[in-house]
């Protein structure tokens, strides 16, 4: 495993993220945040750490995708699946 990948893995593990293989994202129910595999791949460990640490939006789940335009039906399905 490269250093960057190992660092990302440690950031997600230490913050209590689990891997959802169906949606291929890392999620944390307490923080109500989820990161797609693509987002994790394409951002450096520092950026990932910043996103993991930033305060959660109290109103619902926060999804970190490379494509930020999450359709409403997709958001609903993901929130329901991760609840």
């Amino acid at each position: 495993m490269t250093t960057a990948v190992a660092t990302k893995k440690a950031i997600l593990d230490n913050a209590g993220y689990a891997y959802d293989f169906y949606h291929m994202l890392y999620f944390n129910r307490d923080a109500r945040k989820a990161f797609s595999v693509e987002f994790v791949d394409d951002h450096d460990p520092e950026e990932l750490e910043k996103r993991v640490q930033e305060p959660s939006d109290a109103t619902g789940w926060q999804f970190y995708f490379n494509n930020p335009a999450v359709p409403e039906s997709v958001r609903r399905k993901l929130e329901s699946a991760l609840a």
């Binding site: 169906y22 949606h23 797609s36 995708f65 494509n67 359709p71 409403e72 039906s73 997709v74 993901l78």
Partner: peptide, 13 residues
Amino acid sequence: RRDMEFRTFAEEV
């Protein structure tokens, strides 16, 4: 489904 980043079909389209 897996080829899309959301891995969820959008009902809107």
